[in-house]
């Protein structure tokens, strides 16, 4: 199998795997970055969201061949030192219940805020509506995004 080069959380990585392997499994099984979660495998739940360049993408829908040569950021690399303001807002609003879907939510929220520094509820719903949280943390996700937008996260 050919080796593929990609940048993950700022580090160049070389991965020797089937080019069709979804980035999700490369991150989790080959690179040991388990913060990116498996929820549905078909791009319906958003649990595996990471950044590819400046876009939030579903890692289960990006084959290794398309990840090659790009820069990937996962939840582990979102704030290499300390916490990203969105992570702080998440803690302040006590968003997580079971917590499983939250890394994906946070990766989408940070991409949203990069595009729309002060998103409306409708803009938040358009992005978070593509994710699933079975615990029902949606109201707090919305509050946390507004808090981060206001710079209210201490």
């Amino acid at each position: 199998m050919p080796a593929f080069q990609l940048t993950v959380n700022g580090r160049p990585r070389s991965v020797d795997a089937d080019p069709d392997t979804p980035l999700l499994w490369i991150l989790r099984d080959n690179l040991g970055l388990t913060g990116t979660k498996f929820g549905c495998g078909v791009g319906l739940c958003g649990s595996c969201t990471v950044h590819q360049g400046d876009k939030a993408v579903r890692a289960c829908q990006v084959p290794l061949r398309e990840a090659a040569g790009t820069a990937i950021v996962t939840i582990e690399g979102l704030a290499p030192r300390g916490l990203h303001p969105v992570q702080r807002a998440w803690i302040e609003e006590d968003v997580a219940q079971c917590g499983y879907c939250q890394p994906g939510m946070i990766m989408s929220a940070t991409a949203l805020l990069a595009d729309h520094p002060h998103p409306t509820d409708a803009q938040i719903d358009a992005v978070i509506g593509e994710h699933i949280c079975r615990c029902g943390s949606y109201p707090r996700i919305r509050q946390a995004i507004h808090r981060a937008a206001k710079g209210g996260a201490r």
């Binding site: 388990t34 939840i75 992570q87 997580a96 890394p103």
Partner: peptide, 14 residues
């Protein structure tokens, strides 16, 4: 567990 959850620490069975 909030800070561990939002930083993607290995916490779950998977």
């Amino acid at each position: 567990d909030g800070p561990r959850i939002v930083t993607g620490k290995p916490l779950f069975g998977l």
